[in-house]
Every structure is written in structure tokens, then in C-alpha cells.
């Protein structure tokens, strides 16, 4: 069975004197290594120089607020349904009178948890969301964990802070700033 066209037939013919001297081959090889010695290095000095993220990078999740600072999520559960890793769980609650400045819709997520060990960062939750509430940020990486109880991210860590608005990457699709 021929898998590739790169197979090289074995040559068992006796070596010539030039080949048995090794020196031409060694000189050839040393020329190659010397050429690499002066080549541009492939390494990027990481903490000082950072490679830009891909524009479609899917990083840490964020639950967006709208322009007035109200949570957009209405706890419809479509993200949880869409999630192939079943990483999202939520509890819905009804908005009380006087909470209109906190929640945009009449129903909201009282609890919203993402298990970061289960999440595969596929972005299907982002696509499923009808309220443009959940996004995978294009500029933030999910942090590393030191303890097992750190891996479930609740609303305290997911909901966007008003003084530090998150980039959603939605501009790249719509041209509209979120």
C-alpha cells in the first residue's frame, strides 16, 4: 500500500570513496548548520513581546450588560441547550418591582455557572444567545486553576464590570460597537 509519494527507495549499493571519507558530507552538513546559525530566530520573547490574538479568538466568557448597566441575560437556557460539553447551568428568577435598573428583561438568571473544565470554548453559547448576553472575549484567556473549587465560574466572575467593559468581538461581525 502506498501512503505517500515521499518514500525513498533503499540504496544498498556500496559507498564510493568520497562517501566513505565522510568529510564532504560533514562539510556539507556543517555549512547547513552555519547557515542556520545566522538565520533569523523563530522565537518570540514572550512576556515582553506578545503575538497578537487571532481576531476570531474565543477566550474567557463574559455576561454582558446593556448601555444602562442592566444584565442582558434572560435565563432562557438556550446556551445551556446549545452547549455540547454541558458546561452551563442556570437558575431563572422573576424580576421584582424596583429591580428594573438591574435586569433588562422580566426574567433573569439568579445563578449562572460555567464549569471551565468542561467548557471547550466552541462559542456555540454565543451563537445561541438571542439577547446578545454571553460572549467569548477575543482578548482574554481563561485563567489557570490551582484548586478544583475554582473551576466553576459563577455570576461574580462572569458578569461584566461597569468600570471595565469587556470587548465582545461583535464588531468583527456587525461593525457595531457593543
Amino acid at each position: 500500500m502506498k501512503l505517500t509519494n515521499r518514500a525513498k527507495p533503499i540504496d544498498n549499493s556500496p559507498m564510493t570513496v568520497a562517501e566513505r571519507l565522510y568529510i564532504p558530507a560533514i562539510a556539507n552538513g556543517m555549512g547547513i548548520t552555519l547557515k542556520h546559525f545566522f538565520k533569523k530566530k523563530a522565537t518570540i520573547n514572550y512576556p515582553e513581546v506578545q503575538r497578537p490574538f487571532s481576531p476570531v479568538f474565543r477566550g474567557l466568557h463574559v455576561l454582558k450588560r446593556d448601555e444602562q448597566g442592566r444584565e442582558r441575560c434572560t435565563a432562557c437556557g438556550l446556551c445551556a441547550v446549545a452547549c455540547p460539553a454541558e458546561a452551563i447551568t442556570m437558575t431563572a428568577a422573576e424580576r421584582k418591582k424596583g429591580e428594573e435598573h438591574l435586569y433588562r428583561e422580566e426574567k433573569y438568571a439568579a445563578e449562572y455557572e460555567i464549569n471551565m473544565l468542561r467548557c471547550i470554548f466552541c462559542g456555540l453559547c454565543e451563537e445561541a444567545c438571542p439577547k446578545a448576553a454571553i460572549f467569548l472575549q477575543p482578548d482574554k484567556i481563561a485563567p489557570a486553576f490551582y484548586e478544583r473549587d475554582e473551576v466553576i465560574f459563577g455570576k461574580d466572575r462572569l458578569v461584566e464590570k461597569m468600570d471595565d467593559r469587556a470587548t465582545t468581538g461583535i464588531e468583527k461581525y456587525t461593525g457595531v460597537k457593543s
Binding site: N5, R6, K8, P9, D11, S13, T16, V17, A18, L21
Partner: peptide
């Protein structure tokens, strides 16, 4: 002498397929 022998023998030896053949 060694270099001369090497050159003469390399010239007389049948050509070896040194490069990988690509279809």
C-alpha cells in the same frame, strides 16, 4: 591521492538517487 581517487571513483560510479522523488 585520496582526493583524486575519490573524484575518479565518484565520476565512474553509477548515479545515485539522492533526491526524494515527488510525483
Amino acid at each position: 591521492v585520496i582526493v583524486a581517487v575519490a573524484i575518479v571513483q565518484a565520476a565512474m560510479a553509477p548515479k545515485k538517487q539522492l533526491r526524494t522523488q515527488r510525483v
